[in-house]
Simulated scan of single mutants.
Amino acid sequence: MIAVMTGYFRDFLILFLVILIHELGHALAAHSFKWRLVKVELLPFGGVAEMDEYGNRPYREEVIVTLAGPFQHLWMIAVGMVCLTFGLGDPFFFERFIAINWMILIFNLLPIWPLDGGKLLFLVLTLWYPYKKAKSRMLVLSICLLGLFLSFSMILYSFHLNSLIILLFLLYAHYVEWKHQPYDYVRFLLERMHEVGKSKKMKVLSVDPNMTVAEVLSRLYKGYEHEIHIRSSRPFICKEKEVLTAYFKQSARTCAIQDLFR
């Protein structure tokens, strides 16, 4: 009994160490790009590095920060294998150390929110869809993939309490993210409005004159500055920041885009 308890405690310490290093990887990468880091939380079944960022950082930075956590497992696995090969330390410890690292690495790269794989899925979708639509589609796709993952887990393995806790946490994370979509979207727009001197690729949006300001802004893409072409009887062009200013400072959310500049 004592041996079993000692084994569980050792596994818990290894898990805690691995998760800590994983989250520090995210935090250090974010700090190197001067991201606004809120906190790093360690939970019994994982960790969270919370950033005060809302989708306007360059793709390169977002990919690096997202992959900085999983990358930590690669060097930890390499260290464990070297120690096993040369007989350094307790072989059982390093066998468990390697196994836990592989387990967390593979699980964390599943395309399910809020795992790192889910964040990468969201970045891919923002290449094809406007930011707002990409977020909602990612969450729908993620919950479907979570259902598939649960089904395969129940077929291939017995269902444990740990699995139930992780499942409940992931379901709750989806619920919270879905509820927070409007808030995150407004923060996305606010950041764009206050960005100064950041060069971006230009994207042209051709919109119907009767579309509201809110509908036009819902078509904004991550990583682009937008030039908005209004297809009225007398076509005209406006800048993204003019529409953002009307949305936030002129309470013109429901105003038709063609009426905005009359």
Rank of each mutant, 00 (worst) to 15 (best):
A99H: 09
W113M: 12
W102N: 06
D116V: 06
I112N: 04
L88N: 05
I104V: 13
P130V: 13
T85A: 13
L125Y: 15
V140D: 11
S151I: 11
S142G: 07
K133I: 11
L115R: 01
K135F: 15
L84Y: 07
L105M: 12
P111D: 01
L146Q: 08
L105R: 00
L145P: 05
P91W: 04
A134K: 09
I98V: 15
I100K: 12
I143L: 12
F92N: 10
E95S: 11
W128K: 14
T85M: 11
N101G: 05
T126C: 15
F107D: 04
C144S: 10
P130D: 05
L150H: 03
L139A: 07
F97Q: 06
F152I: 15
P111W: 01
L109P: 00
F107G: 01
P91R: 12
L139T: 07
L150T: 15
L127I: 04
F152S: 13
L120Y: 00
G118N: 02
K119D: 04
L109D: 08
G118R: 00
L109Y: 02
F122A: 04
S136F: 12
K119M: 03
M138E: 08
F97P: 01
L150G: 01
L127G: 06
D116N: 13
W113R: 00
D90E: 08
L150E: 10
T126V: 13
F97R: 02
S151T: 14
K135D: 10
L148Y: 11
I98K: 05
E95C: 03
L110A: 14
L121S: 11
P114T: 06
F97L: 09
K119H: 13
F94R: 06
L123A: 01
N101H: 11
G117V: 05
L148W: 10
L84I: 06
L127V: 09
V140S: 14
F122W: 12
G147Y: 10
I106G: 04
G117R: 00
L125T: 00
D90K: 01
L141W: 11
P114R: 00
G89V: 02
L121P: 00
S136E: 14
S151D: 03
Y131F: 15
L88H: 09
A134G: 09
M103H: 07
S136R: 14
F107V: 14
R96M: 10
V140G: 07
L84D: 10
W102I: 09
F93R: 08
I98L: 10
F149V: 03
I104K: 05
S151M: 12
T126F: 03
L123H: 07
L141R: 02
D116Q: 03
K119P: 00
K119I: 00
G89C: 02
L110M: 15
L141F: 13
L139F: 12
L139Y: 08
L150I: 15
K119V: 02
L115P: 07
P91Y: 03
L105C: 06
G147R: 00
I143N: 01
Y131I: 01
A99V: 08
F149K: 04
